[in-house]
Amino acid sequence: PPDDERKKAEKAARSGNEEKAREILERLGYSEDEARELAKRLR
């Protein structure tokens, strides 16, 4: 489910793995720019 994926992205971002967070968010349908912004904010 998307919620689980989003949680994974948050966890990745918090542990400093912004790249992985961005990949997950892009898979969820965010654009590259949106995903980058979100990954930064989740950190």
Score class of each variant (00 low, 15 high):
Asp4Gly: 10
Lys8Leu: 14
Glu32Ser: 07
Leu28Pro: 01
Arg43Asn: 10
Arg6Gly: 05
Ala35Ser: 08
Tyr30Arg: 02
Glu10Ile: 14
Arg43Glu: 10
Leu42Cys: 08
Ala35Trp: 04
Arg43Thr: 13
Glu23Val: 09
Leu38Tyr: 01
Glu18Phe: 11
Leu28Thr: 01
Lys7Asn: 11
Asn17Gln: 12
Glu37Val: 05
Ala12His: 10
Lys8Trp: 10
Lys20Gln: 10
Leu28Phe: 05
Asp4Thr: 13
Glu5Val: 11
Glu32Ala: 09
Ala12Pro: 03
Arg22Pro: 01
Glu34Pro: 00
Ser31Ile: 01
Arg6Phe: 15
Pro1Asn: 15
Ala13Trp: 03
Gly29Trp: 00
Ala9Glu: 06
Asp33Gln: 11
Ala13Leu: 06
Ala39Asp: 05
Gly29Met: 00
Ser15Thr: 11
Arg22Met: 11
Glu37Gln: 09
Tyr30Asp: 00
Leu38Trp: 00
Lys7Gln: 13
Leu38Lys: 04
Arg36Phe: 09
Tyr30Trp: 06
Leu38Gly: 01
Glu34Gln: 08
Glu32Trp: 00
Lys8Thr: 10
Arg14Ala: 10
Lys20Pro: 04
Glu19Trp: 04
Lys20Ala: 14
Lys11Thr: 12
Glu18Ser: 07
Ala9Pro: 06
Arg43Val: 15
Ser31Trp: 01
Lys11Val: 13
Arg6Thr: 07
Ala13Ile: 09
Arg36Asp: 08
Gly29Leu: 00
Glu5Asp: 11
Glu37Ser: 07
Ala12Asp: 03
Gly29Phe: 00
Lys40Ala: 10
Gly16Pro: 02
Arg36Leu: 09
Arg27Lys: 15
Lys11His: 15
Arg43Asp: 07
Glu19Phe: 06
Ala21His: 03
Asp3Gly: 13
Leu28Gln: 02
Leu42His: 02
Leu28Arg: 00
Arg41Asn: 12
Lys20Ser: 09
Ala21Thr: 04
Glu19Arg: 13
Arg14Tyr: 05
Glu37Arg: 08
Arg27Pro: 01
Ser15Lys: 08
Glu10Tyr: 05
Ala39Lys: 01
Ala21Trp: 09
Lys40Leu: 02
Glu32Asp: 06
Ile24Lys: 01
Ser31Glu: 05
Glu19Ile: 12
Lys7Tyr: 07
Glu26His: 07
Leu42Pro: 02
Glu37Phe: 03
Gly16Asn: 05
Tyr30Val: 04
Pro2Ser: 11
Glu10Asp: 05
Ser15Glu: 15
Leu38His: 04
Arg36His: 08
Glu19Met: 13
Asn17Met: 09
Arg22His: 03
Ala12Ile: 09
Glu26Trp: 00
Ala21Leu: 12
Gly29Glu: 01
Ser15Asn: 13
Glu34Val: 05
Glu5Gly: 09
Pro2Glu: 14
Glu32Cys: 05
Arg6Ser: 07
Asp4Arg: 11
Glu23Asn: 07
Gly16Ile: 05
Arg27Met: 09
Asp4Glu: 14
Arg27Trp: 07
Lys7Leu: 11
Lys20Leu: 15
Glu5Lys: 07
Glu26Ala: 05
Asp33Asn: 09
Leu25Glu: 01
Lys40Tyr: 01
Arg43Gly: 13
Ala39Tyr: 01
Glu26Phe: 00
Ala35Ile: 07
Lys40Thr: 07
Ser15Pro: 02
Leu28His: 01
Glu34Ser: 04
Leu38Pro: 00
Pro2Trp: 13
Ala21Val: 07
Asp33Glu: 13
Asp3Trp: 13
Glu26Val: 15
Asp33His: 08
Pro2Ile: 14
Glu18Leu: 15
Leu25Gly: 01
Asp4Ser: 14
Glu5Pro: 10
Arg22Glu: 02
Glu19Val: 13
Arg43Leu: 14
Arg14Pro: 04
Lys40Phe: 00
Asp33Gly: 05
Ser31Met: 03
Arg22Asn: 03
Glu10Ser: 09
Lys20Val: 13
Asp3Phe: 10
Leu28Ile: 08
Ser15Asp: 14
Pro1Gln: 14
Glu5Trp: 13
Arg27Asp: 06
Asn17Leu: 09
Ala12Arg: 05
Gly16Tyr: 04
Glu37Trp: 06
Glu23Gln: 13
Lys20Phe: 11
Ala21Tyr: 11
Arg43Ala: 15
Ala12Trp: 06
Lys40Ser: 11
Glu37Tyr: 05
Glu32Tyr: 04
Ala21Asp: 04
Arg22Tyr: 06
Ser15Gly: 10
Glu26Asp: 02
Glu19Gly: 08
Leu25Gln: 02
Tyr30Ser: 01
Ile24Phe: 05
Asp33Pro: 07
Asn17Glu: 09
Glu34Asn: 04
Glu5Thr: 10
Leu28Trp: 06
Leu28Glu: 02
